[in-house]
Amino acid sequence: MSPHEEARLIAAARRGDSRAFAALVDAHQQAVRGFFRRFAGHWAEADDIAQEAFVTAWSKLSRFEGRSSFRSWVCGIGYRIARDARRAHGRGAVRDNDWASVHDDRDAAAPLEDRIALAKAMAELPDDQRAAVALCLGEGFSHTEAAAILALPLGTVKSHVTRGRERLLSRLRGDD
């Protein structure tokens, strides 16, 4: 979707056009759901977070200033929802990954054992680090976009990505 088309849809959605907002959801759902699947581990939970993020985004659309992309803004809303939910429910429960989701993904090129090791290693990263890795290495967001989404300084995001990557690599090598 071109930035012009996106701006047109956002303006229409602000006026209450639900079809325009549905088009925005349709266009960005893959990136947003992908991020939360990598961040949350549990795929059903990830889709719930993504849904809540989009619903919240619609109710707060008047506050969207366009300083970041719509996709980044929704990811930021969802990240705060997910982080608050984790704090409320305790970290132990949410680290229980959905292994069935990993097994079901038979088309992926990576070997299953690597994906399981990666999912375990991701679950062990601190929230901010995991989110930075999921955004930059998993979904291809730029460091600047990730910094805006996570409301962190750019340098912190870069360091989270570097450290997170190192930890994932060491886990894949079987160092831990």
Partner: peptide, 19 residues
């Protein structure tokens, strides 16, 4: 290995039911 494991699709194809 890391690039392939990270690149494994986490999101399904566009899903009208989600929208």
């Amino acid at each position: 290995r890391l690039a392939r494991a990270l690149g494994a699709p986490a999101a399904p194809k566009r899903d009208a039911a989600f929208t």
